[in-house]
């Protein structure tokens, strides 16, 4: 019962960890490079969820100061402000890796990392 209660209290963190493991599984098992990029994006999203969940407060409102109103509890503003940087870096990394994959597809005609490795080894053996 205690474990169940603890799980309910940490449900967002457990969701973040589950997303992280799913993303890692996608990166490790798929040989298609596009699917690897999708896996990396899922892992990034899990980190964002984890960070923003840390800042959550029960009955809190978004941190926009209530001018002249009653005093209310605000959600922690720092994790949201920090995660903006993370989102920008995620977009940049995704764009750069997609462009590299396009170059690889142009050069080898496939997006499968195993086939690319075979083609490369054949090219070096010749």
């Amino acid at each position: 019962m205690e474990v169940l209660n603890s799980i309910i209290e940490h449900i967002n963190y457990i969701g973040a960890v589950a997303l992280f493991v799913i993303g890692l599984y996608t990166v490790l098992t798929h040989t298609n490079l596009l699917k690897k990029v999708i896996g990396i994006n899922i892992m990034e999203t899990s980190i964002f969820l984890f960070f923003v969940s840390i800042g959550y407060v029960h009955d809190g409102v978004s941190p926009i100061i209530n001018l002249g109103g009653d005093r209310v509890i605000y959600v922690n503003p720092l994790p949201s402000a920090l995660i903006l940087t993370g989102i920008v870096v995620a977009v940049s990394i995704t764009a750069y890796s997609l462009s590299l994959i396009m170059k690889l597809y142009e050069a080898y005609g496939t997006m499968d990392i195993d086939e690319i490795m075979e083609l490369r080894s054949e090219a070096t053996n010749e």
Partner: peptide
Amino acid sequence: ALGSLNNPSY
């Protein structure tokens, strides 16, 4: 725990 005011991050 998630969402408590005594969270060390707050």
